[in-house]
Write a protein that binds this DNA or RNA. Sequence first.
DNA 1: CTACTTTCGCAACTCAGTTGCATTAATGAT
DNA 2: ATCATTAATGCAACTGAGTTGCGAAAGTAG
Lengths: 136, 136
Amino acid sequence: MQQGCVNFVFMGIKRKTKSVTTVLNIFEASHDAKSVVSLITLVKNEMNKTTVYRILDRLEQDGLIHSFNGKDGLKWYAKCNGCTSHKHFDTHPHFQCTKCDKVECLTVDISIPNIKNHNIETADILLMGQCEACCS
Amino acid sequence: MQQGCVNFVFMGIKRKTKSVTTVLNIFEASHDAKSVVSLITLVKNEMNKTTVYRILDRLEQDGLIHSFNGKDGLKWYAKCNGCTSHKHFDTHPHFQCTKCDKVECLTVDISIPNIKNHNIETADILLMGQCEACCS
DNA sequence: CTACTTTCGCAACTCAGTTGCATTAATGAT
DNA sequence: ATCATTAATGCAACTGAGTTGCGAAAGTAG
Ligand SMILES: [Mn+2]
Ligand SMILES: [Mn+2]
Ligand SMILES: [Zn+2]
Ligand SMILES: [Zn+2]
């Protein structure tokens, strides 16, 4: 018979393992985005890097976190601020600090013009500059 | 005594080699962006992949081409349409087709709002959807 | 507790991009 | 045209992010 986790009734996470809890707690603790590389380092004593990649995949499938590419092309994940699994701002812009590399989800809305003869579906927008801490 | 190429008096390209000419001709032939991977395949009988990477680096230093990351995080290069080394639209958005993967430089201007307590310097914008050929 | 099946660890792999070094070739000077 | 200088190239080895296959471990329903 088909099994399912009480908390996550979607398609990704089916069992609430210790590793899943650890990763989720990290995203709850601060809403800043995290690169996969930094996450792997952060939990290297608790789980294997393959496990990290697989958990992030499943959490994203369930809409609990979302992913995007940082300025170097590396993959980042974040639990976005105002979004829930019910009301999800599909494409919000991100900001990456050029000094400290910190990445934030932005709640601003950037309007995309129509492009002649093109059907635009989504937009990946990464703003770069100095974050609050690095501004002063 | 310091040497310098007649055509490129910047800091990147100093000698107009056969390989440099080959790569430049590809960018002249069509203004669509090219991924490094596809360029390497395209010229694999004429030069080594290391040479491709190095030539692209130098051409970008000279402002003859520009680079950005495609939707998979891979590096793409293009000779932009309206830009010259004198008048360069530093940050224009790009479009990548989700069906055929083709990438185009866009000339539209997307206005970036101010972000409180942040100093925005540049924006990487990648629009995705169907290109003209794939729309119909 | 048991049986079922998801998840994990590990090792090996893929692939984009880089580096060091010996060799080749473009260029200015003669 | 030839030479000397040094930029540019080829090659092989490497790095680092991300993936895959498989046997072992651990959630969960009953
Ligand atoms: Mn976000
Ligand atoms: Mn462009
Ligand atoms: Zn910062
Ligand atoms: Zn297309």
